[in-house]
């Protein structure tokens, strides 16, 4: 398992735009990529069914549709992201309790500062949080 998330700048921009758009509610979504590639290539903004400033939850039916789609495309959720809108970009106890994709990079974006974003990435496996480097690169995908 890598200790770095390599992600295209266009995808990061799309995630940040989503987080800003939904601020002060938390925003959430997925970046799918080919199974085993560890490369996030397809950004999917998800609805926050909780529509809350302090909680997010994928809509279960939307999730089933998106997870099916990934299955059909031989993709997996390489990145699962959400925003914290008033606190730092570090996984909360809630985030850790729910983290159910051991292969995913959990990307957090904090939008508490209006002019800058804090973007951090973590592995969360069996309740253990490991921060990893975020390597933002240009043009790994056509976004």
């Amino acid at each position: 398992m890598n200790d770095v998330l390599t992600i295209d700048s266009a995808i990061v921009e799309a995630i940040v735009a989503h987080a800003r758009r939904d601020h002060p509610d938390e925003a959430c979504g997925v970046v799918a990529g080919p199974i085993g590639s560890d490369l996030p290539t397809r950004h999917i903004a998800m609805d926050n069914a909780a529509r809350s400033m302090t909680f997010y939850e994928f809509d279960s039916m939307e999730q089933l549709r998106v997870w099916r789609e990934m299955d059909d495309n031989d993709e997996e959720p390489v990145v699962i992201y959400h925003s914290h809108t008033a606190t730092e970009a570090y996984p909360s106890r809630t985030d850790i309790s729910f983290a159910g994709e051991p292969g995913a990079h959990y990307l957090l974006v904090s939008t508490r500062e209006p002019d800058s974003e804090e973007i951090r990435s973590f592995r969360i496996v069996d309740g253990v949080v490991t921060e990893e480097e975020v390597n933002i690169v240009d043009a790994t995908v056509d976004a």
């Binding site: 909780a50 302090t54 997870w67 106890r93 809630t94 309790s97 994709e101």
Partner: peptide, 17 residues
């Protein structure tokens, strides 16, 4: 499927909400 959820709020408070 694993439910995908979380957020800045504490777990018990989120569950209560």
């Amino acid at each position: 499927l694993p439910a995908v959820a979380g957020g800045a709020l504490g777990f018990a408070a989120a569950a209560a909400l």
